[in-house]
Amino acid sequence: MKDMSVQDRPLLRVEGLTKFYGGRIGCEGVGFDLWPGEVMGIVGESGSGKTTLLNCLAGHLAPDAGRVLFDLDGEAVDTVTMSEPARRKLGRTDWAFVHQHAADGLRMNVSAGGNVGERLMAVGARHYGDIRASALDWIERVEIPGDRIDDRPTAFSGGMRQRLQIARNLVTGPRLVFMDEPTGGLDVSVQARLLDLLRGLVREMGLSAIIVTHDLAVVRLLADRLMVMKDGHVVETGLTDQVLDDPQHGYTQLLVSSVLQV
């Protein structure tokens, strides 16, 4: 576990990030720092702009304004203006993206091992035995039985697919993981298992993560910090437990009080 004081630079610095859909606001003027090893939750209801924000951060959408500075070897590089090849390379190396629907993040017609191995091969791994060993290691780390390595994700349950997607993303040791509703659509017991897994991995690997969710229980367990969005704007930020236990903004108060018990 890296001590946070060791590195005194944010891993990600976001400034004035804005995205319009025509005249409609996707997100506007979003800024924050994310430090190494930190997990930030972004919550808000559907249409609040949290997914737009995540896609702008991860380079899937081009923002209309703002900067997303990522620490690359000590240099803060603006990933909005960097060349597409460089950004895509980042997406295969230092960054990872976990989709809400595993089918969007997996190749459903490729075996579990091939899915996990793809990122390794994408960064130049050319030794089958090594690739397979890494894939097997990761498949077991996400608690999928090793003998399922040659099965396709189509034969997996929803929870297994999501865990496979996580293995596929983490195999190259990224530093920043974007997650879009990673537990959405899963049974509660399956969610708990996934959350526990994610928490362990985040700590062991010293990962930073940005998690978009509408589930306050998820951020309570996973996120160090919280950002609350409404109508494309950030209405409140702070320590996760502080925002949930002593919300300041009316919308956050409504959000927190609407949940049965977090």
Partner: peptide, 10 residues
């Protein structure tokens, strides 16, 4: 800042 509080709690 949240980060300072996190460090303090740690």
């Amino acid at each position: 800042t949240p980060r300072e509080i996190l460090r303090l709690r740690r």
